[in-house]
Design a protein around this nucleic acid. Structure first.
Length: 467
RNA sequence: GCCGGUGUAGUUUAAUGGUAAAACAGAGGACUCAUAAGCCUCAGUAAAAGGUCCGAUUCCUUUCACCGGCACCA
């Protein structure tokens, strides 16, 4: 469900940008390297390549239900063009020099703590009082190996300056504060390679076949490898990254990687920084508890989309889920929102207006060029989908109220001209609502606009009530 | 442990140093164009204790509860 949230949110923003006339390059992808994938492939008894091929196929299939714009791009980190880009990126970081003339990538001895009991390396945060919590009393072995390191430390000031110059770089601001605090606290160089003999499933480090890249270093370059960097034969990188406003969407657990590490990497490689990073909260179960199979509070977005439709899923993720904080998703909440806002709200309003117009108007009235209020767009500029949805639904409510107060269904029987005039206005207002659905509920947007233009009431309800 | 944040109707959230708002859920009513939908009315709220102030939900302190960050797990 978390993935669904990010896809739908990012897609809504992309569609919004398109709607107001921007050219949009919408990218998403799959990170296909790393230890986890290697191990899971092994468990399932297949090659890593076959495993990721199958995962990718499943991923592409699952994405369909989110209503992502058809021209969206998908990059896989196992694609040749990505591997090439990641290696070139590495090379440029290595060639790049900080103010002391030191390369951003260097090799040094790396000491890892190894717990014989667990048979794995332990990070400091996993230890308690310097011991493995699972095997207290057993001393940790220190193993040394040579690794490549990224000179994160020398980019601290540059990053802070960048944040200062771009005060809205991370949305929402409290996430930005976390990042700033983290960077201000000092940056430590970190290892960006793994010994190939230990972790064979990764992109080889340029000029050193014994090492593969740390997955994050590889994965983050997808933002520009998808655009054809570095050759940039089609000029996409130039257009959408260098001269565009690249916006990245991520969950809150990804904040630091997108907003600090990736930005530092771009600086090291001498490439322009991202424009913005938008951080979503998590979707939780009832009461804010994490969704988990053991608790049994997991909801599969696929099931929702199959039963209620893609747009119903999108409605909930955009309108009922907090724009930046954690939010619960339960079937009960979903059904309530569906019936109240989609069936009784939007669907019913469309029915009542279109029934009137089909009956009393000869044809659809002339539709003006533009009819979406600026305020609606403003919410998108702030990436506040929830407010945008609320704005559209306030309009729906106002229209319901207006029908109740002006009673065109009665007026048209006593004063036909006047009644028709009201109905005409209602149809145009409904069209404005339909337009606002463009980035939010794309299927309904198309369906509703078509019905209005054809001056036809829906044959079946747009959103049938579900009890 | 350190740093930051949050605690408002049944639920999700809003505004505000001067009689607390919306949506959904609940109760009642009049209507009928509509998906027994919609509209109107009603009821209901500031974690706890102190302090500053003529006056605090809003500012400060403490307590309690919850959340986030504190890097090589991606």
């Amino acid at each position: 469900m978390g993935h669904a949230l990010e896809f739908v949110r990012a897609d809504a923003v992309a569609r919004y940008k398109k709607l107001i006339g921007f050219e949009v390059f919408f990218n998403t992808g799959t990170d296909e390297h790393g230890m986890k994938i290697f191990e899971r492939a092994e468990d399932e008894g297949m090659s890593p390549q076959k495993f990721v091929d199958e995962s990718y196929a499943k991923f592409r299939e699952s994405v369909k239900i989110f209503g992502i714009m058809p021209e969206a791009h998908f990059i896989r980190t196992t694609e040749e063009r990505h591997i090439k880009a990641a290696r070139e990126f590495w090379q440029r970081c290595k060639d790049g020099k900080d103010e002391n003339g030191q390369s951003y990538i260097y090799k040094k001895n790396y000491k890892a703590k190894y717990c014989v009991g667990c048979e794995e390396e332990k990070s400091d945060s996993e230890l308690e009082n310097g011991e493995c919590p699972l095997h207290p009393g057993r001393p940790l072995e220190v193993i040394e190996e040579e690794n490549y390191f990224f000179r994160y430390s020398s980019l601290q000031n540059k990053l802070l300056k960048f944040y200062e110059d771009n005060p809205d770089f991370v949305v929402p601001d409290f996430r930005f504060n976390e990042v700033k605090q983290f960077v201000s606290g000092g940056l430590r160089d970190f290892s960006i390679s793994r010994l190939k003999e230990k972790m064979p499933w990764g992109i080889p480090v340029p000029g050193d076949p014994d090492h593969v890249m740390y997955v994050w270093f590889d994965a983050l370059t997808n933002y520009i490898s998808t655009l054809g960097w570095p050759e940039d034969e089609d000029g996409l990188f130039e257009k959408f990254w260098a001269n565009g406003t690249p916006v990245q969407y991520c969950g809150k657990d990804n904040t630091r990687f997108q907003a600090a590490m990736w930005q530092a990497m771009l600086m090291a490689a001498g490439a322009p920084n991202s424009h913005k990073v938008i951080v979503d909260g998590f979707i939780t179960g009832e009461g804010g508890v994490r969704m988990s199979k053991t608790i049994g509070n997991v909801v599969d977005p696929k099931d929702i989309a199959e039963e209620y439709g893609t747009d119903a899923l999108r409605y909930f993720l955009l309108g009922e889920v907090s724009s930046f904080e954690d939010s619960p998703f339960t079937m009960e909440r979903f059904k309530n929102a569906y019936n109240a806002k989609l069936a009784n709200g939007l669907g019913n309003l469309a029915s009542r207006i279109l029934t009137l117009s089909e009956k009393y108007l000869e044809k659809c009235p002339e539709i003006p060029e533009k009819s979406i209020p600026q305020e609606f767009f403003d919410y998108f500029e702030k990436f506040d989908m929830q407010k945008a949805v609320e704005f559209a639904w306030n309009k729906i409510q106002a229209l319901d109220k207006r029908i109740q107060e002006e009673q065109p269904f009665k007026v048209v029987k006593t004063d036909e001209e006047k009644g028709k005039e009201i109905i005409k206005e209602l149809v145009l207002e409904l069209y404005a609502v339909a337009r606002m659905l463009n980035p939010l509920l794309p299927e309904t947007n198309v369906k509703l606009k078509k019905l209005i233009r054809e001056n036809k009431k829906p044959e079946t309800p747009l959103f049938p009530r579900k009890d």
